[in-house]
Structure formats: C-alpha cells, structure tokens
C-alpha cells in the first residue's frame, strides 16, 4: 500500500508527463487557451489512461512476456489504445450525453496523445525494475497507481498552463514571440518550478 502511494505521488510531481518527459505536448499546447476546455481534456486523459494502461499491463505480463513477443508491443499497444478510445467514445455517447458533449471533441485526439502511449511504454520498461525502487511497477495495483498519477499530473499541468495563458492575454509580449513562442518559454519556467519536486524523498 505504501508503494502504491509513493508511486502515485512520484508520477504526479517528480516524473510529471509534461515537465519531465515532454509527453502529450501537441495537444497540451493546442488546447490550453482557456481553463474550462483544458480541464475537460485533462479529465478525458485521466479517464483513458486509467483504462488503457492496466489493460496494456495485463497484455504485457500475461501474453507478450511469456510468449516472447515483445517486439509486437508497439502495434498491440496502439491498437488497444485506439480501440479503447473508440469504445469509450461510444459508451459515453450512449449513457451520458452531457459528458459526451463536453468531452466528445477531445476523445479522438487522445488516441494519438503521446502521454497515453508513453505511459504504456514506460510501464513496459519498469516491469523488470527492482521492487524496492519507487518507480517499479510490480503488480496490477501499481499499474493502476501509475496510470492515475500520470493522468493527474498531465491534467494538473494543462490546467495550470491554461490559467497562466488566460492572464498572458493582457501582457505586452514582443511581436515575434506572441502565441506559441511565449507559451514555450512559460512552459519552460513552469518545468523549472517542477524541478524542485525532484528533491522530494518519498
């Protein structure tokens, strides 16, 4: 249980998907103009991550690993992600039209979000790690913790950036830097702030 929480906290703050690994950057920059949509996308990412990562964990440990088919993992993982995103979209549309209305446009985007694929690939790397390591994913519960943590970390980052960008609207930015340029530098400064967490001992 202790490992569950340390993995969770670690993947939210220290190994943050955006600030430590730059994953999911494209939609992170494109959909962070206002807080409300950013929150919607963040929740959708947590949701999809929480389903796909444990499924991929089971595939990796129960199917690919024992059969020695690791080289097929790229194709299989992306197929699982694309399939599940499609499925989630259909289920949400059927049972909760209001949620679909707010998440709907983001769901297809998530299939090609690197944070999701990256989460699965990191999980694959960490399975063999020493169980004492706080990054190790040794059982099914750990994969859920990692999925939850990385999803929350991503959502946290996009909401923060959206809040800063809303304020930046009123700033007097040099012309060539306007828009994307200043956003990059803002994210760099935020990443710098997040580096403080790397000293966190859990």
């Amino acid at each position: 249980m202790e490992h569950f929480f340390s993995l969770l906290v670690r993947s939210i703050f220290v190994d943050n998907m955006i600030f430590a690994f730059f994953l999911g950057m494209c939609s992170f920059l494109a959909v962070s103009k206002n807080v409300k949509t950013a929150l919607g996308l963040g929740v959708a990412v947590i949701f999809v991550q929480l389903i796909t990562l444990p499924v991929n964990y089971l595939l990796q440990t129960k199917v690919l690993g024992p059969l020695g088919l690791e080289f097929l993992s790229f194709i299989l993982f992306i197929a699982v992600i694309a399939g599940i995103v499609q499925l989630v979209e259909m289920v949400v549309e059927k049972f909760s039209p209001s949620l679909y209305a707010s998440l709907g446009i983001f769901l297809p985007l998530i299939a090609v979000n690197c944070a999701i694929m990256g989460g699965s690939l990191f999980m694959q790397q960490r399975i063999g790690m020493d169980p004492a390591d706080t990054q190790a994913i040794a059982c099914f519960g750990d994969s859920v913790a990692f999925a939850l943590g990385s999803g929350i970390g991503w959502a946290l980052a996009i909401v923060c950036l959206a809040a800063i960008r809303e304020k930046l609207e009123y700033a007097d930015v040099p012309k060539p830097l306007k828009g994307v340029g200043i956003t990059f530098i803002t994210v760099g400064l935020m990443a710098l702030a997040f580096q403080c967490f790397s000293g966190l001992s859990i």
């Binding site: 600030f19 830097l177 994307v180 340029g181 956003t183 530098i185 760099g188 400064l189």
Partner: peptide, 14 residues
C-alpha cells in the same frame, strides 16, 4: 536539463 529545451525551442521560434 529539461526546462532549457523548452526555452530554447521558444527562442528558435522567436
């Protein structure tokens, strides 16, 4: 470190 990559790309865009 990671943050500098972001800031450098920002400067390239500039």
């Amino acid at each position: 470190m990671a943050p500098m990559a972001l800031i450098l790309v920002g400067c390239v865009i500039w």
